[in-house]
Design a protein around this nucleic acid. Structure first.
Lengths: 223, 223, 223, 223
DNA sequence: CATGAATGAGTCTTCATTCAT
DNA sequence: CATGAATGAAGACTCATTCAT
């Protein structure tokens, strides 16, 4: 199909094929190791998991773990960032679809509880539990990730309020709202998805928590 | 009931005097060690603190630490329980004073931010950060302490609603409210008192967070 | 004998006895471990010796090694300093006895070959072989120890020359003489005591090497 | 003998040309890797240098290092032998020129300090520092190389003495002279070229050290 | 021949815990 | 009851070496 055949760096040539396959395999290994760490950190906790266990589960040698990751901490931080990225993506995706009403917040909350918490309880364990109480470096990463999330929520809030014709408010107000919402859903996630094996009624929780959140926002804006 | 029990060092024999002195000293040592652990856990983190460091700060030997506490974990759990107890006390005290209106919640929030967070940032570090991401045993304690807090809030809420003539609501509603409130203030505490050195305007945060909380509660009750 | 008995910090009291015994035992352990390291470093080389082997030979646990020494490097550096100290002592002792003639140098050389090399071949192995080619920290220590030795020789030389009525010489000359003498005996020690199992005739080597050294010094002073 | 062997790239067929080019490239690679090892061993020390670092500096893969050298030790030993060879060449070249007087020794010393030490401080680091305190195999090589050097000096000395009409001396005397001279210049090299960044006055050191050496030799021969 | 990912044995080091004094 | 030296299991991490591609 591609007339420019015959060059070795061509994506159709044999060399390129084997090269790209090796590259794919490398990525796969990286992901396998990361996935193993995710599973074990969520299951047994960060400190209770040894590199050897991760290597065993990923079916590689301990040396390989250190080929792909600087050290044990790097595994945790990478996971935290990955999960943080997914969270922000969820937030951003929902906002894009939206018509700039507070319904976006409702949708985000639903998506968070249904998809994020429902499908990935390990993510909650790592992002909201294991990331806490570790080293200074991890704590700093945690702070930064939480800050990014709060900023995202804050910005979304500011944009929507403006769109809804709500007068400009004191800057500290959106921040407090963002922080509150984050805390709200953090604890709901931990309470219902980590400490209770399986939440009976996700829809119910979603409905009510949204009601709480929107009531809180409205009341705060009234003042 | 027994008036002679009011003071522990009350006694009339020489032996008893020295015995009571020893008892006092023992208690003091216990507290000194616990205080040292509190300081260091909050400052450097649980895993970054060694028993030797705690012993040094408390000016005792490592062996003494093990006389007063079963092991390192015991120190953390004792601290968690102590702080959990203070939190519940704060909650209970405020409720006792109250006239069974939602103003109690307002007062509790103010007390939490002003007194608890303002005067004891170490407690936040230990209760909301160091208690997470440790061993299974610690996690179980954390779950139980958080449950107790949620239950306290839930009960307070139920009692007040009843008093206010608000019809009996679905049981899952008070739970969600309690969980939400806990999460709200947990993250506010961490955000403003742990990650920002000193919150500029505690009163402002208190005012607004209460507005958010009450707005949330009201909106949830409307449905 | 001492009338001031009865005080617990008295060297004759029971408490003091057990305390001093424990102190003695502690020192003994320190020395046992150091001696084990000395033996093994000299026999198998620094890098070929593991902490576990040292602990085994000293009949202690690995942890104990780390109670008495910061790390493996600390063991080597301590040994180097110890041996360096012995060497300087040998030099100083011989000079004290001396009548400020170059015969001191002769005596020192004899003492070095007879006592130092003859009785402690391990010291040569550690001071002249194992201390080289290790880490930056060790190399720095080596440099400093060698500098001290050169300075000692230099000073001795200057003092003796002055005493002997030899006119003041360019400062770089004593230095070169000191460096030369050190090199001379370093290699003689390695050649005859490390690489040849047992030197046939120590006296002969001593006699001749002294002749070489004094001839060198004299010739240098003539210019 | 075969004139067509003078140049390695001499050939008359296409295959041979490319073959000879490949041969040249191979040699070049070998040298590049060796040079990289030399630089890094001298700079950071043998143990502080990893094969990967050598490969990186030589711009080849780690695998290639193992194609050209059996193992890491082989790199060090090859360097030691190479440097030892250069040293013996310097010695031999100077002796060939000479008229069998002790002036040869003077010339050798000057050449050693000026050319060897002045132009190749890395060689001193490797030959006199890194070669020590490593494995048994390396130590054995070191012993052999030093023996060869001592033998060279010894032979030169014997030949010159004979030529100068100096009566046959006890065999152990030339050996001690050779060992002494080696030690002398070893330490001078380390002291002035390794531990002092740049010797102020190489000529001065050369002059004086020769004076010392010759004085030593003469004095020893008198007895 | 070159590559560089994979290996895994080997070691240092830490530190919670114990126990003789 | 206090002490603090001793323990030793546990684990992170390194890096020389190999080998499939």
């Amino acid at each position: 199909m591609d007339p420019s055949m015959g060059r070795s760096n061509d994506s159709n040539s044999l060399l390129s094929r084997s090269a790209s396959r090796r590259l794919r395999e490398k990525e796969q290994r990286y992901n396998t190791i990361l996935k193993a760490a995710e599973t074990l950190f969520a299951q047994k906790g960060y400190h209770q998991t040894s590199i050897e266990e991760i290597a065993d589960l990923a079916e590689v040698s301990t040396g390989s773990v250190y080929f792909y990751f600087k050290n044990k901490e790097d595994l945790l931080i990478t996971l935290m960032q990955e999960i943080g990225h997914q969270l922000r993506k969820l937030l951003g995706d929902e906002l894009k679809k939206a018509d700039f009403s507070f319904d976006s917040f409702k949708n985000i909350a639903f998506a968070f509880l249904r998809e994020f918490c429902g499908n990935h309880p390990e993510w909650i364990a790592i992002f909201f539990r294991e990331s806490a109480g570790q080293s200074l470096e991890v704590e700093e990463q945690r702070r930064q990730l939480f800050s990014k999330l709060t900023d995202d929520i804050k910005e979304a809030f500011v944009k929507i309020s403006r769109e809804q014709g709500i007068g400009p408010v004191d800057d500290s107000c959106p921040e407090l709202i963002a922080v509150s919402i984050l805390g709200l859903y953090e604890r709901i996630a931990c309470h219902y998805f980590l400490w209770q094996d399986q939440p009976k009624d996700v829809e119910d929780i979603a409905q009510r928590s949204v009601s709480f959140m929107l009531g809180g926002i409205n009341n705060l804006l009234k003042d």
